[in-house]
Write a protein that binds this DNA or RNA. Structure first.
Lengths: 162, 162
DNA sequence: ATGAAACCCCAGTGAAGAACCGGAGTATAA
DNA sequence: TTATACTCCGGTTCTTCACTGGGGTTTCAT
């Protein structure tokens, strides 16, 4: 959004994105690997994850750094280092993951300083509603859920082969 | 997404956006005006709508053209021309509007030719679920709904003034 | 100790899209 | 016939996304 309607010198920004971008997908795939590895105790290295899930490693590095700052993974530096989940897989929801990556902290803080029109307020409300409906789904899904589904789907694929 | 993981020469694109962008908001605001005007029968001009809702008129022009091609509004050319809703306000859902603007026709057609990994399939599934939860909200909301809410909210604002 | 393996930080780049802007048309009511 | 309003097409600027690269620093193994 370049210059959304400057009213009386006050710019109003109005977008409420709910994205599963490439970034989020990469991060989720990486976390899925870490979740599968969680019981081993051994850290997984960026290179391994990147190779396994076909993700550019230097990019993945940045994403994992973000997840680390968000408290979702822990890192071990040096040789034999790598990444481990900071919590159990069933205690990390997908909502946490994407919030960490997209950085939605400053959302509607100080109850919307920018005085908007009645119309845009109405539009935004319904959108928030849709947004929250999506968030609810993501909140109920954890990394463990995804892991279980992965296993189930693999079994299914084997069935089809026979 | 620039170059998402080209596996064996086959690029895979994987984003499932659910955006309320500036574009959608502009369009909804314009449609809201048209919905309020619907009983009058007289068309509304781009200039009027743009001035009322503080939208750049040349940009709004493009959006209305898209909505026209999508069959949501009708246009009348020449002097005394303008735009009218193509249907009654309660027969136009918000989902239709954003689908028209974002152009989500080719979604999952031919059941996903690009063979994806088990992991990304699992991630995409849950995302689709979230996506549909949001869509359900938008499908249940029509332009009439927004109109009614606008009226209600205006009453509320008057109450606060006293 | 020392070197290699791994994470860490910061900066830049290229493509794509979003949000416009402008001009030259074309249809139509008065 | 003329002013009004839509229509089509192209360009411009700005931002973001998905990367890439160049330096580090920390830590384990020998």
């Amino acid at each position: 959004m370049k210059n959304r309607s400057i009213i009386k010198g006050k710019p109003i920004t109005l977008d409420i994105p709910v994205e599963l971008s490439c970034k989020c997908e990469y991060a989720l795939l990486a976390l899925l690997e870490l979740a599968a590895q969680y019981n081993e105790g051994e850290p997984l290295q960026i290179r391994q994850i990147a190779a396994q899930q076909n993700i550019p490693d230097r990019y993945l590095e940045q994403l994992l750094a973000t997840l680390r700052r968000g408290g979702l993974v822990k890192s071990q530096r040096g040789a034999k280092g790598g990444y481990v989940l900071a919590r159990e897989p069933w205690k990390i929801t997908l909502l946490e993951v994407i919030n960490c990556l997209e950085g939605l902290e400053a959302k509607s803080s100080k109850e919307e300083v920018n005085h908007k029109t009645v119309e845009s307020a109405v539009v935004q409300e319904i959108w928030q509603e849709a947004h929250q409906a999506a968030n609810l789904v993501l909140q109920k899904c954890t990394l463990q859920t995804l892991c279980d589904q992965r296993v189930a789907r693999r079994q299914l694929d084997i069935m089809y082969y026979i």
